[in-house]
Design a protein around this nucleic acid. Structure first.
Length: 219
DNA sequence: CACCAGGCAAGTA
DNA sequence: TACTTGCATGGT
């Protein structure tokens, strides 16, 4: 039952190799990056993060105190900077009120509670919440994004109109609940989506999943 | 020039 | 509920 999704994972991993996500120095940086990368190329997020580091702003207390306009200027390269400045402030406000900015204390809470809390913050939706849970807090939850939907729809493994939660359950119900696996799998899907499952290229000849024989009853 | 990128919330019908 | 639109930079 869990065999086929694992087979796809193995195929992708053999092709692309380990992805080393999330590229950041610490969990706090992961959380900031998760917000900054919303609908934005990662290369632009890197510039914004570098600006924050250069200005010594990459800490809960600094972002708590800084004026939104100043914060917006620093994160400008990541786009939607006024919106994202608000989002960062809202997230930090939650973080400080909830655990005083202590990440370990944050991590000591259950996944379901944390997810609910994160979704209550203006600017954090399901993907961002799950990215924070998995990549910053090491919680076993599967991250779904546009690539996940595109790749698995193209390969006819999920329906076109599947909601976020359905797709997430599809993976979580059919894979061993391991943080490392969820981490690597999502990153590999992103890599596959970037490289192969593009628009105008649905039948890519070198797609690593091209000749993959899947079982219709895999789930 | 157009299109896209590791989304989300608010508005409309 | 199911679309649509605003938000914005930087790479191809």
């Amino acid at each position: 039952m869990t065999k086929t999704l694992l087979d796809i994972y193995n195929r992708l991993h053999a092709h692309f190799g380990p992805q080393h996500w999330w590229p950041a120095e610490n969990p706090f940086e992961v959380m900031i990056g998760a917000i900054l990368t919303q609908n934005t190329a990662w290369s632009n997020v890197e510039k914004a993060i570098a600006n924050l580091k250069r200005r010594k702003l990459l800490s809960p207390r600094k972002i708590e105190r800084i004026h939104p306009r100043t914060l917006a200027v620093a994160i400008r390269p990541s786009g939607f900077y006024n919106e994202k400045a608000k989002k960062l402030k809202a997230f930090i406000k939650f973080l400080i009120s909830f655990t005083g900015g202590n990440i370990n204390k944050l991590r000591s809470n259950g996944t379901a509670l944390l997810r609910k809390k994160l979704l209550g913050i203006k600017g954090i939706g399901e993907e961002t919440a799950d990215s924070i849970l998995l990549y910053a807090l090491n919680k076993p939850i599967f991250v779904v994004d546009a690539y996940t939907k595109r790749v698995f729809t193209r390969h006819k493994l999920i329906s076109k109109d599947a909601a976020y939660g359905e797709i997430q359950r599809f993976f979580m119900n059919n894979l061993p609940r391991r943080v490392k696996l969820f981490n690597e799998y999502h990153a590999l899907i992103v890599e596959a989506g970037k490289n192969y499952c593009k628009k105008n290229n649905p039948l890519c000849k070198i797609c690593p999943l091209k000749d993959f024989k899947y079982d219709k009853n895999m789930v």
